[in-house]
Amino acid sequence: MRITAKSIVLTITVIIIVGAILVLSKQDWGLLSLEIIFIALGLFYWICEKKSLSVKYLSVIAVLSSIAAVSRVPFAIIPGAQPTTFLIISTGLIFGPQAGFLAGSTAAVLSNFFLGQGPWTPWQMFAWGMAGSTAGLLKIIYPKIGLKGILIFNLLWGYLFGWIMNFWSWTAFISPLNLKSFLAVYAASFCFDTFHALGNAAFCLIFNTSLTKILMRFQRKLEISEIIIE
């Protein structure tokens, strides 16, 4: 990706203008937090748009995100437990932070085509996108991370995902915004978050070894044959 002076100036100008509007309009945190999420998603997508990505890379991401999305639908009846987070983390670990983010954010949109789009969609896009990209970063920092490390990371994201999702409910619908109200909102979702974390751990224990082998094979194939598009 070529980062030109023009694009840097443009990004900074956009951030300053948006920031000024947000500060001057005296908004509540509910709308502000949503706007920050949209800006973050927009910047991620803009970076992806500017990069030269191969068609094979794009179609592999499409397949992985649709697997992650489909896997969410049959588990929708069990609150919290779903293999989506585990699949996105695995994608991030093998294919890198960018692939992890793209797979995570796309899986949220795709699964909500079936389960219904809502105010939760951008938050899910962000949360799963972050799960995927932080998994990619984890692999860069600890290249020899074992099953134990991945298991803990999956458990952690079960809670983190819920906490990110709760953030909007807390900022948009609760007043005053203090530690007491923060804990009350987070306590209300603790059971669901625990189900999510335990589900992630279970899926990781069952599928991690075989899934890693499959994904590693395709990652190597991707390195060998690439069709770059502009």
Partner: peptide
């Protein structure tokens, strides 16, 4: 119109779901 690569991934993904089923 703005982000065609992510839009392409989403449309490919949507097409793949019935095939996966």
């Amino acid at each position: 119109k703005f982000t065609y690569k992510p839009a392409l991934i989403i449309s490919l993904g949507t097409r793949l779901i019935p095939r996966m089923k």
